[in-house]
Design a protein around this nucleic acid. Structure first.
Lengths: 215, 215
DNA sequence: TTTATACTATTGGTTCAACCAAATGCAGGC
DNA sequence: GCCTGCATTTGGTTGAACCAATAGTATAAA
């Protein structure tokens, strides 16, 4: 079941697609409930979820409105987003720098643990494992940055599930090696709490991926 | 009335104070409703608001839990403020640089149009307008960068709707002036297609905000 | 005609009582 | 000791009814 979650994403989609725009007033709750074929109570729980995210606002006696700041951009969820090559080069260094500033000791340990499989996959020559290990490591970086908003944004750019693992597989053995080395340097900068080098290594890493990526 | 909002903030406070910690299971809805002296339905709408913000999660038949990633730090408005503050210094310059590279003629015109209200608000001394005009201009920058993911990431760091407009209001008249001047320089760099100066001015701008922000 | 007031319909907010569905825990049987 | 099956717990959903704030309209006064 879980209708409330489903209804919330349906409404979110209407806003993201521009059908309902900022400042627009939504149809009355009673009618929305009927349109979606759900009870008014359930419809309301869905509205409250979007309310909690600042996407919707309500005024008793007036109506429910799309918040001014909550247009297409604000309603992005990871399942709705497509992978974009030019997002990572800017976002990852920012996240890496933040991670270097704020990573907790536990997060650092976790990162150490996550880097190992990358090296193992390089040695074994397993492309799929290599890609999976990299994305896991990047998620660890995001976790270390301890910022839910940035983590969500980065997550939306990473290959999710079966989508685009090939973006993280290089062409040659040597390139695999240098990708691993670059991530290792990144981790070193994070461990030494050096934001700028961390951002720089992150940028190098992305540049490497883009250069060696299969066409 | 508006009980739901009140209950949500009460629960939020319990998490912020550490009474309920990440991975903890909250008391059953029926009992919580009684404790707060409110109907179960209203209690549920409050839970959904926090659910929408990623602070709580529910499993049917099991219970309602404080999300691991959204512990003490993530759930409080004050801490969200910090998240925004330390996310922007990294992200905005990156977006500005991209905007300088890629802004279309139309986007440039739009930016000109968006900068004017900032200056007007400074002259008029209207803090609320000043904050709104700045965030609108920043959204324009994100739009000019022509990258939905980065726009979404930046959007998540901006004051959305009723949240945190005070972030963008400085303390003194002179600071208002210099904030405006900085944005004007940023727009100039964007217009001249100079990514590095644009990033630099963006960084200056954020630094200004952080220095002059009300405590 | 214009303005002010009162009323009514609309719309979100709250409550209640009942039932459904998934997960949990315990008792009994192997 | 382990597994099965049932009863309990707990979140999910429904429908109806009523409260409270707003908005629009009709009416009355200037």
């Amino acid at each position: 079941m879980e209708k409330q979650q489903h209804i919330a994403s349906l409404i979110e989609e209407k806003i993201r697609s521009g059908k309902w725009q900022p400042h627009d007033r939504l149809p009355p709750e009673r009618q929305l409930a009927e349109d979606f074929g759900v009870s008014r109570n359930t419809l309301r729980t869905a509205l409250r979820m979007l309310h909690g995210r600042g996407i919707l606002g309500s005024r008793q006696g007036s109506g429910t409105y799309v918040e001014p700041a909550s247009g297409t951009a604000a309603c992005t969820t990871r399942q709705n987003l497509f992978y974009r090559l030019d997002g990572l080069p800017h976002l990852l260094p920012a996240v890496a720098a933040l991670c270097a500033q704020r990573a907790s000791p536990q997060a650092l340990l976790e990162l150490e643990r996550l880097l190992t499989p990358v090296g193992v996959a390089v040695q074994a020559g397993l492309a799929a494992d290599f890609a999976a290990a990299q994305t896991a490591f990047l998620r660890g970086i995001a976790h270390g940055a301890d910022n839910p908003q940035l983590a969500a944004a980065l997550e939306s750019l990473l290959p999710s599930g079966r989508y685009f693992p090939e973006l993280f597989t290089a062409r040659t053995e040597a390139e695999h090696e240098s990708v691993f080395a670059c991530l290792a340097r990144l981790l070193g900068a994070v461990r030494r709490k050096e934001p700028e080098p961390a951002a720089s290594y992150a940028a190098d890493y992305i540049a490497l991926l883009l250069r060696s990526r299969r066409p």
